[in-house]
Design a protein around this nucleic acid. Structure first.
Lengths: 202, 202
DNA sequence: GTCTATACGCCGATAGAC
DNA sequence: GTCTATCGGCGTATAGAC
C-alpha cells in the first residue's frame, strides 16, 4: 500500500477523482457507482483517464479509506497531545466528529454508514484501526484516573460512540433535521454521563 | 407489493431461497451475491428455478425486508399490549433484540448493518417504518407519564437505540466476543438510565 | 499522454425444448 | 414445471492510434 502511494503520481486530476468518488460512493454506494459515473463527475473526458491515477476501481476506494482513517488518526494524536484529562480528550473528539458531519458529511458517511468490507475485503475490522484503539486507550486512562466508571473499556467505548454515532447517523440521513452541531451539547452530555464516574443526576 | 405477495406461490423452495439469500446477503452483501450463489446455497439445480418464486433478484431482497419488518412490527404491537409502563415495554423490546442477535444474527445484520437503500431505493427511511415510529411513541408516552425525561422523543430514541444497536453491532462483527445476551444487563441499564427521569447515580 | 475502439467476463433474465 | 442454452447489457479494463 505504501508502495502504491508513491508510485501513483499525485495530480489535480487524482484529487478530482477522489473527491468525485467520495461523493458518489457516499450518496449511492460503491456498487451503484461506475467508473463512467466517476469520470463524468470528476470532469474527465474519458473513463480511461482514471487509469492514469489508479490501477482499478477498488484502488480508489482503498485510497479514500486510507486517507480518511489516516487523517482521523492524526487528529486523535493531536487531541491526546493537547488535552490532559480523558473528559477533555473525548470532548474534543466528539466536537471533531460533529464538525466533520456538518462540513464534510460524505467523509462521515464513509466512516459511519458505508460497509467498506464489502468492497475492501482486506479491510481491518474497525476495532483494529489505530484511530479506534486510541479511543479505547483514552477510556482505559480515564478509568485509571478515576474519571470514568470501572467497566470494560471496550464496552464503554461502544456505549459512548453508540450515542454519538447514532446521533450523527440520524443527522446524515435527514431523520434529525437540524445540523449536527445543534445536537452536540445534548449528545455529549448523554454520552459522557453514560460512562462518567460522577454523573450529574437529571 | 401486497399484490405480489399473493401472486407468488409460497413453497418450501421459496423459503429455501429466502433463507439462503438472507445468509448470503448478510455475510457478503447484496451486490457480492449472484443468483447463482443463491441457487447453489438453496440446493437448487438451476438458477432458473428462482424465477418460479421471484420475478427478479431485487424481489428477493424486498420480500426479506418486508418479512423482517413486518415481524418486528408484530412483536412490538405484542409488547405494547402486554406491558403497561414505558420502561417495561422498552425492556421487553431490548430483550427481543438481544435474543434475536444470538438466535438469528443474519436477521439482525439485515436490520442493523446492511444498507438496504442501496438495492431497494423505494425503501422508506427507517424513521418512517411502523416499527420505529412505535418505539418513538413509547418514548412519548413515557415522557407524558413522567417515566422518561422531557427531551425530544426522537432524540431520546436515537440515544437509546444508539447504545443498544451499537452493542449488538459489536457482537455481530465479533468485536465483542461473548454472545449478545451476556451484555444485555449492562447495555439495558446504560440505555435506560440515559433517558430515565430518575437515573440511578453510579 | 490523451482518446477511440474494443475486448472480455459476469450476471440477470428469457426462450424454448422436453 | 424443470433444465439447457443463450441473449443482451453493463462495466471494468486494455490495446493501440494519434
Amino acid at each position: 500500500m505504501e508502495q502504491e502511494l508513491h508510485t501513483i503520481k499525485r495530480t489535480d486530476e487524482t484529487d478530482d477523482i477522489l473527491l468525485a468518488a467520495l461523493k458518489l460512493f457516499a450518496e449511492q454506494g460503491y456498487f451503484n457507482t461506475s467508473l463512467t459515473d466517476i469520470a463524468k463527475a470528476a470532469g474527465l473526458t474519458t473513463v480511461s483517464s482514471i487509469y492514469q491515477s489508479f490501477n482499478n476501481k477498488q484502488a480508489i476506494a482503498i485510497k479514500l479509506n486510507d486517507m480518511i482513517f489516516d487523517s482521523l488518526n492524526v487528529s486523535i494524536d493531536d487531541i491526546r497531545r493537547r488535552n490532559q484529562k480523558a473528559s477533555e480528550q473525548l470532548r474534543s473528539f466528539v466536537n471533531l466528529l460533529f464538525k466533520l458531519t456538518d462540513e464534510a458529511p460524505n467523509i462521515m458517511r464513509f466512516l459511519l454508514v458505508m460497509q467498506t468490507s464489502e468492497f475492501i475485503p482486506q479491510q481491518k475490522p474497525l476495532l483494529e484501526t489505530p484511530a479506534f484503539t486510541k479511543v479505547v486507550k483514552i477510556m482505559q486512562a480515564g478509568i485509571r484516573a478515576g474519571e470514568i466508571r470501572n467497566i470494560d473499556p471496550l464496552l464503554a467505548t461502544g456505549f459512548f460512540l453508540g450515542v454519538i454515532n447514532n446521533t450523527l447517523r440520524m443527522v446524515l440521513s435527514g431523520e434529525l433535521e437540524k445540523n449536527a452541531d445543534a445536537y452536540q451539547p445534548q449528545a455529549w452530555l448523554a454520552a459522557w454521563n453514560l460512562i462518567a464516574k460522577k454523573s450529574t443526576c437529571f
